[in-house]
Simulated scan of single mutants.
Amino acid sequence: MPTACADCPLRCQPMFQPMNAGEVAFMQAFKSSEVEVAAGQVLLWEGQSSPWLYTVLRGQGLRSKSLPDGERQVVNFVFPGDFLGLQSGVMGEMKHSVEATTDMTLCRFERNELWRVFRDQPARAFDLTYLAATEEHFLGEALLTLGQRDATSRLAWALLRLWRRAVATGMQGPRGVPLPWRQRDLADALGLSLVHTNKTLARLRILGAAHWSGGYLAVPDPARLAELAQEEDGASTPRPLF
């Protein structure tokens, strides 16, 4: 049975800003359906237009761009609460692909109804603008990381962001937070070789900053990981949930 927006398990998580009753009611009317996607399935294809927009309710995935030689560049990683397909909704086609890494549950919206948000719910429309600005800010940080940080700082930065995001969406358990991607995915995202990535992950483990094993990431010393990442050790600012 589809999850009612009023009962959305993400709304109570510290990652997201609160929504008033009117916004919840609007999102319930805006929501077209709920879909299940199997691990490995591509949700959105680079270069294609999609009639749908999605919010991730459960599960994890990744965004990537294809290269002419058949390789790919991982752009970033997908978590519950992420809004997918905005590029297609605004620009007419996707500039990257989105693939499910685990089984996923998605709230689905009709792309043609997007303009109704701007017409009837300006506060929600601003939230979309905020999310786009957040994505731009992330890409700026990623560019800084690739250009100026060494391998240890790159991996520490990436693991810190992934850990903070998972914790803020209520995904932490006894083994840490789920990190279902391959080392190859993280290496592709950070512009490192697989061998270099493996050695640097071992160094972070020896330093007691982070341990990634068996699909879970444990961070016994967040302050140490933040220091290695050249980041401040603090909570992220809550963002809108669309």
Rank of each mutant, 00 (worst) to 15 (best):
A223C: 03
L179M: 14
W163F: 10
D150F: 02
G140V: 05
T200G: 07
R149F: 06
T169S: 04
R164V: 00
L160H: 07
A202S: 04
W181Q: 06
W212V: 13
W115L: 09
V167S: 01
R116Y: 04
D221C: 03
R149A: 11
D120H: 12
P178N: 02
L225K: 00
A125C: 06
A132L: 15
E141V: 04
W115F: 12
L192W: 11
L201D: 05
G214P: 07
F126H: 06
L190H: 06
A151R: 02
L204H: 09
D120W: 09
P220L: 12
P174M: 09
V117C: 01
I206H: 10
W163V: 01
L160E: 10
L144I: 12
S193C: 13
D120P: 05
L144M: 08
L225F: 01
P122M: 03
G191W: 14
V219S: 10
Y216P: 01
F126T: 05
T134L: 13
T129C: 12
V167Y: 00
A223Y: 01
L190Q: 06
R165Q: 06
D127M: 04
W115R: 08
R149E: 09
V195K: 12
L204C: 06
G147Y: 12
A226Y: 01
A125Q: 12
E231R: 15
L114K: 09
D185P: 05
V195C: 05
Y130T: 15
A123T: 06
L114R: 06
W181D: 09
T129L: 12
E232D: 05
A133F: 09
L190V: 09
L192T: 10
T152R: 03
E232R: 07
A156L: 10
L228D: 08
